[in-house]
C-alpha cells in the first residue's frame, strides 16, 4: 500500500463540510488534532500486508447447536 499522506487542515475542513459538520472554526480547531491522531493510527496499519484476508469479528465454536 502506498504511503498515506498527512492530513492537512484544509483537507480536514473539506471532509468536515462533506460530513455535515457545523463549520464552527473554534470547535473544528480542537477536533483537528484528534483526527490527525486517528490518521497516524491508520498510517501505522498501512504497511501490514492483508492480501487475501477476509475480516470477521467472531469465533465459531466447535460444538455449535444446530439451528432450529
Amino acid at each position: 500500500m502506498s504511503e498515506r499522506p498527512d492530513l492537512t487542515y484544509e483537507v480536514f475542513m473539506t471532509l468536515a463540510q462533506q460530513q455535515g459538520f457545523e463549520m464552527d472554526t473554534m470547535h473544528l480547531k480542537e477536533l483537528f488534532p484528534e483526527v490527525q491522531a486517528m490518521f497516524q493510527r491508520m498510517k501505522l496499519l498501512d504497511h501490514v500486508d492483508t492480501a487475501g484476508i477476509q475480516p470477521g469479528s467472531g469465533f465459531i465454536p466447535t460444538d455449535t447447536i444446530t439451528p432450529e
Partner: peptide, 10 residues
C-alpha cells in the same frame, strides 16, 4: 481504512 483495519485485526 476501516476495512483494512478489520483485515489487520483478522
Amino acid at each position: 481504512a476501516y476495512l483494512h483495519a478489520q483485515q489487520v485485526r483478522a
